[in-house]
Structure formats: C-alpha cells, structure tokens
Amino acid sequence: MLRFLLRSLLLGALVCSTVLVASFLLSRASGNLAINIAGPEASAEAIAKIQHELGLDRPLPVQFYDWAARAAHGDLGRSFLFHEKVSSLIATHFPVTFRLGVFAIVLALVVALPLGIAAALLEGTMFDIAIGAVALLGQAMPSFWLGLLLIIWFGIDLHWLPIAGVETWTGYILPSFVLAFVAIPVILRLTRSGMVDAMRADYVRTARAKGLSRASIVLKHALRNAAMPVVAVSAVQLGFILGGSVVVEVVFNIHGLGYLAWESIGKGDFPVVQAVVLLFSLIFVGLTVASDLVSALLDPRVRGA
C-alpha cells in the first residue's frame, strides 16, 4: 500500500513538471507580453526596456528556473496586468470554480447513478436503449453550445435563471448543469456496465438463493461491487470538470479560475497562466491519486494487501 502510494505520488510529480515545462514554453511562444503592456504604438526601445524590467530578455531556461525556484517557496510572482500578487488573484477566483465543480459532480452523480442502475436492470429494453442513445448524444455535444442553448431557453426565453454571473446561487444552476453534462454519460455508462456484470455474477445468484429482497440484492450486493470503478472515475471526472470550467466560465461570464486563465492567456500574462496551470495540474494529479486510494480502500482484496 505504501509503495503503491509512493509510486502514484512520483508519477504525479512527473506529470506536473512536464505540464509546467510545456505550458511555460507554449505561453512564451504564443505572444510577447511586453508588446501587450506597452501598446501597439510603442517604440522598439520602450518594448526592450519593459522586457528587460520584467526579465523577459533572459534565456528561457533561466527564466523557468527562476520562476520554479520562487514557486517552490510559495511565491508565484505578480501579475503583469492586474498589478496584484498571483496568489491573491487565485485565492479570490478559486472558490467560485471549486463550488461550480462540486455542484457539477454532485449533480452528475445524482442523475447518472439512478439512470445507470435502472438501465442495467432493464437491460435490452427500450428504456435501456433510449438511455444509451441520450448518453451518446450528451458525450458528443460541445459544452459551449449546450451552454448557449440553455442560456437562450432558460435565461432569455423563460426568464427562469440568470444568464450570467453567480451573484445569487441560482447563477450556479445552468453552468453546473453544463459541466455535469459532460460527466453524466461517462458515469452512467460505467454504472450500467458495472451493474449488468454484477447482476450476472455468481454472488448475486447466491443472494437470490438466500431469499434476500430485491432492494438488498441490487443496492447492497450488486451496487457495492459496481460502484468501485465508478468512484474512481468520478474523481477523475471532477478533474475534467474543473478543466472544462475554462469554457463554461467564459460562456456564463463567471469570474472563476477558468475565466482568469482564459483572460491571462489572451493577454500573455505568463505568471498567472503558469500559476493556474500549476494549480489545475496539481488538483488533477491529486484527484487521480485520491481515486486510486479510494478504490483501493473500497476493495477488501486490495486493502489487505
């Protein structure tokens, strides 16, 4: 168990550093921050002066090392555009995205689990086929488009829900639904296939032979085994949801981390981009490790080993 944990942590660290190097290079290649700050009419000397002040004229490895060394001590630097510490920018934007992500994954589970179980129990019926078709459709639908559709229907036509922002809690409903929509098909299909397998398993036949109630057979004996991979995948899906918040926050004009990332990428505000990428990759790796751990804990065969 300890070796398993150490191995996943090591792999996670490798993933994080790779992502950081890649994002560092890509953001440097995508535009010149000094030009953005100085404005399009600035002279070459002015741009060079700004570049020198920000240290952008140094070789890339030096810049990266400098940034990484500071980040390791908790100093993520200052935003070039907002004139604010990056860490405080993140502190104000993160809670919004976090709330959005948690709402979305809870919503996804609440919808996907019962539908997946029902589809498995009604395997091969019209209900099962319809659920499968809807799930496929959901997987294929781009979330920005779904977001816009929902804004038109529920926000503009029906006036039920706000079309942008999260000033009230109702503002979270549409964006969390859009985010959940991506995770629902994945969780639903996994729940369905897990339940189909479990309901055919020998131990379910034993449970029937023992005269247990239908509820006990489905919810205790079958679901417990089908749930193991679902829990693992849900943690990873939460990572995807947080990543997907970049698109959804822009569509719904919500000032969370995703919006911050989008804004700073567009303007070449490297310190912010790097910090957000670092945070997202840490969260993603953390969730992956957590999902491995949780599924190990759920399975007595792994737990004891």
Partner: peptide, 23 residues
C-alpha cells in the same frame, strides 16, 4: 423469496465467485 434461504437452500459449484467479495 420467503422459501429460498429458509425452507429450501442452494449451494453452487464456484465457491470462489459465489460469495460477494465486498462483504
């Protein structure tokens, strides 16, 4: 259901898979 496990009981070929691994 009232009879099974009470008045009539059954055991199977595969003792490996006939018990639920999670309980």
């Amino acid at each position: 259901r009232r009879l099974r496990g009470d008045r009539m009981a059954m055991i199977f070929q595969e003792p490996m898979t006939s018990l639920n691994p999670a309980y």
